[in-house]
Design a protein around this nucleic acid. Structure first.
Lengths: 341, 341
DNA sequence: CTGAAAGCGCTAACAA
DNA sequence: TTGTTAGCGCTTTCAG
């Protein structure tokens, strides 16, 4: 009738209670640091815990409380996102913080296809939203605290932390135009990405500001990959009315453009000025250090966890005002641009 | 900790059972695809599941069965590991596979300091072991299926998948010596890393093979960072009897060495031949494509998950023979070396 | 083939 | 302060 307890090696709260000579409730109170336990008992429990090497089962805790300290980081398994060092920086930053805050970090590399199980997840950070908007909606619908990175989402309920890509793009092209360039091209990232679209927008704005007519032929669309960057560069370089400057939507692509230019005997910045986007350390390598637009990755990671913690700790996350945070970029001037004046 | 479910919302197996007019046991059988359920009932249950949008609670399942489909990926939060693209490649590969196999991927960036809670974890992949050997031992002691990457561990119980760093280093220096170089230096990675130590070992072996005397002054130790690589390069380049070739323990460092050389007006490969290690795509950028030793990252990621799955599915992992897999490297010859003959 | 009931390890009223 | 007693949602004997 009664199931005989298997000689399980897991020590449970019950074992501790027995050894300490108290009830399991008291043990529970001790491990949850509740004040209402007499010192004498607390000591005995703590002793037993140590002796038995007891560690509470997070699983059972979660099941019993309905609470969770699991944070899911969702990264679109979209090729482009791995070309820059964006993903790694985020993982590094968020991972480190989670470790410090004792959060479990669940990593989801998703193509948006399958709506993963949200049960038992305490909070979610979406690193960009590509083809997985449905997942975002699911999370919000399930009432799970959610933060979206690198993407401005209109939904009033979700906090998002984005980078001012438009401003960043604008500052890059602004700089180029200020140096006297009139023929400024732009190699975009993948336009399905909000970031890429906004950088293009920034490019247009700067042109408008300087009254430089926008020319469709000067815009080369890519998917952020080096391969497409190379192709774009080839086309750009061999075109009749070749641009004297180019704003490239990511550093790795900018470096590829540099490489192509060199192969064609085009000097940088002599014949072609280049501005990248990211401030990827590898931009420092080549013979000419890359001028670029710096993104505040670390701040982004930090803010995301900070905001999430706040959302997660709110009693009723309902009425919470979702914040919309836009981080600004910074133009880092190095050697890849030349003044035409 | 945050509330995951609103008190009433969660649909449980019981709701399904009621709607379908069967017992919860039957529902459990259906969702676990057990054969012994009459078709009629199966249909009714499946219907109810769909109607109620029921999703089994992984938490409860785990608690009840003691099994877990959580895979932890432990990455030492040791600076050097993030300098190469090693970590990202691994995360990408393992993350993708886990997604496909429906495993939950828990990411731990650890400094080895705190022994994390192993309860509820079905398997662990250690990406290198730096200062966290204790964690590895804990995992093994707890009987959790464990795979160690990029590190050969003697422990008979743990499966490890390492790269033949010694052979890789040897092939690099072999190549250099074969080109006629006699003064071959080596810029190491962080020697606390097995990989770095082995690459150094390979360097020595190749020298011995060619009867080139080993000179302590030709070995520059670093922590894999660009900063230290730069310092090492400076020292190397300005030394009296400057080497004509150098084997650098990672591609990013090799690129830094190239940069330093250029700054000093030293031509590559004319005055200095360089071989890196990794086959990091950025090695293709500069004016001179980097000759390097390719590491099979993807295979490593795939194998690790494959092996882990096998370990996890073994009934009693007791007698299981832990495998020791050594993946070989491949010298990729590009433009950064010159023959002296 | 099916279901009642006993857990899995822990928390949370509610009493004492 | 402390202990009793229900659950949390699911699996798994063990009898039908």
């Amino acid at each position: 009738m009664v199931r005989v307890k298997k000689p399980s090696k897991t020590v449970s709260i019950e074992d501790v209670a027995r050894l300490a000579g108290v009830s399991i409730t008291t043990v529970s109170r001790v491990i949850n640091k509740m004040p209402s336990v007499k010192e004498r008992n607390r000591i005995r429990v703590l002793d037993a815990v140590k002796k038995l090497k007891f560690e509470p089962s997070v699983l059972a805790q979660r099941l019993a409380t309905g609470r969770s300290n699991v944070v899911a980081l969702v990264i679109p398994r979209y090729e482009g996102i791995f070309y820059s060092f964006y993903a790694l920086e985020l993982i590094k930053g968020i991972g480190t913080l989670c470790e410090i805050m004792k959060f479990d970090l669940l990593l989801h590399l998703t193509d948006g296809g399958s709506p993963f199980n949200l049960k038992g997840i305490g909070g979610i950070i979406f690193a960009d939203i590509i083809s997985n908007r449905n997942q975002l909606e699911d999370a919000v619908a399930a009432g799970i605290p959610t933060v979206v990175l690198n993407n401005y989402v209109e939904d009033a309920e979700v906090t998002c932390i984005a980078v001012d890509n438009t401003g960043g793009g604008e500052s890059a092209v602004d700089y180029l135009a200020g140096l006297g360039h009139q023929k400024i091209a732009h190699i975009t990232g993948d336009i399905i990405t909000q970031a890429a679209a906004q950088r293009l927008e920034g490019y247009k704005r700067a042109l408008a500001k300087y009254k430089i007519p926008f020319k469709e032929e000067y815009v080369f669309k890519t998917d952020y990959s080096r391969g497409q960057a190379r192709a774009a560069a080839e086309r750009m370089i061999t075109m009749p009315d070749r641009p004297t400057a180019v704003f490239v939507a990511s550093d790795p692509m900018a470096l590829e453009v540099m490489a192509v230019a060199r192969e064609h005997g085009i000097s940088i910045p002599g014949d072609l000025s280049i501005v990248g986007f990211d401030d990827n350390p590898s931009g420092l390598y080549g013979p000419v250090a890359l001028t670029t637009v710096r993104q505040p990755f670390i701040k982004m990671a930090q803010d995301s966890v900070k905001e999430l913690v706040q959302l997660m700790s709110q009693k009723k996350s309902k009425a919470a005002a979702a914040k919309k945070i836009i981080l600004s970029t910074q133009l880092v001037i190095r050697e890849s641009c030349q003044s035409l004046k």
